[in-house]
Simulated assay, not measured.
Amino acid sequence: MTNPIRLGRIAAMLPVADMQSTAFYCGVLGFSKTLENGDPVGFMILERDDAELHLTLQKDHRAVHFNVTHMMVGNVDAMHDACKAHGLRIVKGLRDHDYGLRAFVFEDPDGNRIDVGQHIAK
């Protein structure tokens, strides 16, 4: 039996204490703002390549102690270096995993934990 429901893109929604987090996502990771909503802005869509990220203003945001999203990249070492260069906390160091990913976990400026991985060539 085939499922008649077709899924489109799914985008991660990250809570931020203020919208200054766009400086990291746009300035460091190269995302572009494609939509801002509210006055003051309380919701934003950022895009880069095939990735889409939604930021939502939650002034009382308190980060949780688990990964809130996973990001696949083409050069995990360069991403790791960029996070370190900008003083972000590396929660789990960069290493190769037996399930075929080279990965690390960092905290964005709002403390959201993001797992970053790249497939290891066989």
Rank of each mutant, 00 (worst) to 15 (best):
M1I: 07
T2H: 07
T2V: 13
T2G: 05
R6N: 08
L7C: 05
R9I: 03
R9Y: 02
I10K: 00
I10P: 00
A12T: 04
A12D: 00
M13S: 03
L14H: 12
P15E: 01
V16N: 02
A17R: 07
D18F: 06
M19F: 08
M19N: 04
T22K: 07
T22P: 01
A23L: 07
A23K: 02
Y25A: 04
Y25T: 01
L29G: 02
G30L: 02
F31W: 08
F31P: 07
K33F: 05
T34H: 10
L35H: 05
L35P: 03
N37H: 15
D39N: 15
G42E: 07
M44G: 03
M44C: 07
M44K: 05
L46R: 08
L46K: 11
E47W: 10
R48D: 01
A51F: 11
L55V: 09
L57H: 10
A63W: 09
A63K: 13
V64E: 00
H65L: 06
F66C: 14
V68W: 09
T69S: 09
M72A: 03
M72H: 02
V73Q: 12
G74S: 15
N75H: 14
V76I: 10
D77S: 14
A78G: 14
A78W: 09
M79G: 03
H80Y: 15
D81C: 05
C83G: 09
K84M: 13
A85M: 00
G87L: 09
L88S: 02
K92F: 13
L94N: 11
R95Y: 15
R95K: 15
H97W: 14
D98Q: 14
G100F: 11
L101N: 15
A103P: 13
A103H: 14
F104D: 06
F104C: 12
F104N: 06
V105P: 04
F106S: 05
F106P: 13
F106G: 05
E107A: 09
D108H: 03
P109F: 13
P109G: 10
P109I: 03
P109D: 10
D110H: 14
R113L: 07
G117K: 06
Q118D: 03
H119T: 01
I120F: 08
I120G: 04
A121L: 04
K122S: 07
K122R: 11
